[in-house]
Design a protein around this nucleic acid. Structure first.
Lengths: 112, 112
DNA sequence: ATACAACCTCCAGTTACTGTAGGAGCAAGC
DNA sequence: GCTTGCTCCTACAGTAACTGGAGGTTGTAT
C-alpha cells in the first residue's frame, strides 16, 4: 500500500543529499515553491520537487551562484517567455558552461 | 628601465580579476604566502604569485571549496611528499573533476 | 502510554568573501 | 615644496549561502 505518492522533507533531503535546513532556505528564497503541508503543518514534496532540487544542487556544485540558477529555473517554469529571451539567456549560460568545461579539462591535464 | 620586476597588490588584483581584500584574505588563510613588503609596508608580488592566485580563483569558480584547493597547493609546494600520497590525493580530485565535466556536459545538453 | 525520531520555527554561527572607515604613502602637476 | 588624488594599510562590519542548535510539537513503533 505504501505507494510513494509524496515525500517528507527528510526523504527529499536523503534523496538529493541536501541538508533539511537548506531545503527550507531554498523555499524561503523562492527557488523551491512553497511546499504543500499536512494538516499538522509538515511539508509534503513530489518527484518534481526532487528533480528541481537536484538541478539546483548540481548547479551549485558546479560553481553557479543562486541568482543564475534562479534565472534558469524561471526560464524553465515560465513557458510564456519569448523564445528570443530564452534563447539569449540560455546562450549566455551555455558559453559559461563551455568555459567551465574547458577550465576543468585544463585543470585535469595539469593534475595528470 | 621600468622592468616589471614586481607587482603591487592592485596590479595583482587587476591581472587576476580578484578583489584586493580577497588577496589579503587568502594571505591570512595561508593560500598565498606572506607577501614581501616595501620599506613602507606595502605588499610586493611576483609572477609566481599571480599564477598561484589564478589557480585558486579558477578552482573556486569551478565549485571547489578552499580546503581542497589548499590541499592541491600543498601537494604542488611540498616536493617532499611521498609519491603515493600525491598520487592518492590527485586521483580523488581527478575523479571529482571528471564527475564535474560529465555534469556540465549533461547540463549543457539539457539547455540545448 | 510512552519513547523517540522527525518535524516545526526561529535564531546564532560559519565560510568565503566584499565594502567601508580612518589614516598613511607615493607620483604628478603646479 | 606643496597639494591633489589615487593606492595602499589595518580593522571591522555586512552579505551570500548555508549549517547547526534550542525549544517545542507530531507521528509511529513498541
Amino acid at each position: 500500500m505504501a505507494e510513494a505518492a509524496h515525500l517528507a522533507i527528510g526523504d527529499l533531503a536523503r534523496l538529493t543529499g541536501t541538508n533539511v535546513n537548506t531545503i527550507r532556505f531554498y523555499e524561503e528564497g523562492g527557488l523551491l515553491p512553497q511546499a504543500e503541508r499536512t494538516a499538522s503543518g509538515r511539508r509534503i514534496y513530489r518527484d518534481a520537487d526532487a528533480k528541481r532540487l537536484a538541478f539546483i544542487r548540481q548547479s551549485r556544485n558546479l560553481g553557479f551562484a543562486l541568482d543564475p540558477v534562479r534565472e534558469l529555473l524561471t526560464l524553465a517554469d515560465d513557458a510564456n517567455q519569448s523564445c528570443e529571451a530564452v534563447d539569449r539567456i540560455a546562450r549566455v549560460h551555455l558559453a559559461e558552461i563551455d568555459r567551465k568545461i574547458a577550465d576543468l579539462s585544463a585543470l585535469r591535464a595539469e593534475l595528470d
